[in-house]
Amino acid sequence: MSFANTTTLPLATFKPNHFQLEVSDKVATVTLNRPEKKNPLTFASYRELTDFFLAAQKDEAIAAIVVTGAGGNFSSGGDVFEIIGPLVAMETKELLKFTRMTGELVKAIRACPQPVIAAIDGICAGAGAIVAMASDIRLGTAESKIAFLFNRVGLAGCDMGACAMLPRIIGQGRAAELLYTGRVLRGEEAERWGFLNRLVAKDALIGEAQTLASELANGPTFANAMTKRMLEMEWAMSVESAIEAEAVAQALCMQTEDFARAYRAFAAKKQPVFEGN
Results as ranks from 00 to 15, higher is better:
residue 133 M to F: 02
residue 250 Q to N: 03
residue 15 K to H: 12
residue 208 E to V: 02
residue 37 K to Y: 14
residue 253 C to G: 02
residue 123 I to Y: 14
residue 203 D to A: 13
residue 3 F to H: 07
residue 83 I to R: 03
residue 157 G to Q: 06
residue 147 A to M: 11
residue 163 C to D: 14
residue 174 R to K: 10
residue 27 V to L: 09
residue 240 E to V: 06
residue 253 C to W: 09
residue 219 G to A: 15
residue 46 Y to A: 02
residue 244 E to T: 11
residue 84 I to W: 10
residue 70 A to R: 01
residue 128 G to R: 03
residue 195 F to T: 06
residue 255 Q to W: 07
residue 213 A to Y: 04
residue 12 A to W: 01
residue 156 A to V: 05
residue 258 D to E: 04
residue 199 L to N: 04
residue 20 Q to L: 12
residue 62 I to L: 03
residue 86 P to G: 10
residue 12 A to S: 15
residue 29 T to G: 06
residue 77 G to T: 02
residue 188 E to Y: 12
residue 261 R to Y: 11
residue 277 N to G: 03
residue 163 C to V: 11
residue 83 I to K: 01
residue 245 A to D: 11
residue 216 L to Q: 09
residue 32 L to Q: 02
residue 187 G to W: 02
residue 166 L to F: 10
residue 106 V to L: 07
residue 207 G to P: 00
residue 32 L to M: 04
residue 13 T to F: 12
residue 120 I to G: 01
residue 90 M to L: 15
residue 105 L to N: 04
residue 75 S to L: 03
residue 6 T to G: 07
residue 63 A to K: 10
residue 110 R to Y: 09
residue 39 N to F: 05
residue 94 E to A: 08
residue 89 A to G: 02
residue 269 K to S: 13
residue 2 S to C: 00
residue 91 E to H: 12
residue 120 I to C: 12
residue 114 Q to V: 01
residue 80 V to P: 00
residue 208 E to D: 14
residue 88 V to R: 15
residue 21 L to D: 09
residue 25 D to A: 08
residue 274 F to Q: 03
residue 149 L to E: 12
residue 233 M to N: 04
residue 18 H to N: 15
residue 155 L to Q: 12
residue 210 Q to H: 00
residue 44 A to M: 06
residue 22 E to K: 12
residue 16 P to L: 02
residue 2 S to D: 13
residue 172 Q to N: 08
residue 238 S to T: 15
residue 115 P to H: 10
residue 46 Y to P: 00
residue 111 A to Y: 10
residue 49 L to A: 05
residue 60 E to F: 01
residue 6 T to L: 02
residue 122 G to Q: 08
residue 229 R to C: 10
residue 138 R to I: 05
residue 92 T to M: 10
residue 101 M to P: 00
residue 217 A to L: 11
residue 257 E to Y: 07
residue 121 D to V: 07
residue 77 G to Q: 06
residue 118 A to R: 05
residue 178 L to V: 08
residue 223 A to H: 14
residue 48 E to K: 00
residue 243 I to M: 12
residue 148 F to A: 05
residue 58 K to H: 14
residue 187 G to S: 04
residue 156 A to K: 02
residue 146 I to L: 14
residue 145 K to W: 01
residue 250 Q to Y: 13
residue 222 F to R: 11
residue 137 I to N: 02
residue 141 T to E: 06
residue 110 R to N: 07
residue 61 A to L: 08
residue 246 E to Y: 13
residue 214 S to P: 00
residue 106 V to F: 05
residue 232 E to A: 11
residue 70 A to C: 01
